[in-house]
Design a protein around this nucleic acid. Sequence first.
DNA 1: ACTATTACTAACTTCAAAGTAAGTATTTAA
DNA 2: TTAAATACTTACTTTGAAGTTAGTAATAGT
Lengths: 126, 126
Amino acid sequence: MEKENLKKYSNVEECPVRNVLDRIGDKWSLLILLILEEEKVLRFNELHNYIVSISQKMLSVTLKSLEADGLVKRTIYPQVPPKVEYELTERGSSLLPHIHSLVAWSKDNIGDIKQSRKDYELVSQK
Amino acid sequence: MEKENLKKYSNVEECPVRNVLDRIGDKWSLLILLILEEEKVLRFNELHNYIVSISQKMLSVTLKSLEADGLVKRTIYPQVPPKVEYELTERGSSLLPHIHSLVAWSKDNIGDIKQSRKDYELVSQK
DNA sequence: ACTATTACTAACTTCAAAGTAAGTATTTAA
DNA sequence: TTAAATACTTACTTTGAAGTTAGTAATAGT
């Protein structure tokens, strides 16, 4: 990578990584992807039962943006009361190994990182 | 992964991935890590020249939290005017392959994702 | 005496993500 | 006729990340 390439990353809107991180870096997307990977197909309220601390609004908003990005597929059944099912798309599934790689690194390093944070606090004596 | 494990992920503070994503998911950390990987050692103003759009405050804040997490090492030379050098730590370097894996996926898929977003906008006729 | 240099910090403002609370549509069942 | 169920939406408020602007310390050079 030369300076030219790095310069490109400075342009936030154009950056592919920024686009993807803005998605999975939000509060709920990653969790929803991991749950759907495990459970294959879930309805709105089933997802809500998995993530009790999310509001209906945030679940709805997050699912919509995952759907918009083609990471999650939404199937609606014309019934009353309504039935809507969510599952990963192929694109969503193809992203997950990369996430698991990050998950593994995080688990391996979170202990040391938390210790570093403590040490840093002491050194910068707040 | 069983339900028990997924439940754990619902607890945001405890989640190792959340801890790491909160760091690299911010606006500037990832970019700084990538630049330091390439350039090895840089001073404050040299980094600023790479990322012209960052403010001094955000560069300072971001470097501090990367340092606190032990991903970046800060070396200060007692000179006037001051000289401070930043470089990756081993921990920082060990994170980068996982980031590159995400970068690669993002580059491969950003085209399709942007198309999906357009299609989705049309279907949801705003 | 004044200016330049470097690596910041402090105080304040802005803005978008996230949260809260209430409401909606539709049909079946009691 | 009223309640229950599902999958939401709407309107409003809160919060925290990020941005803006100005200032600081210390010394060397003119």
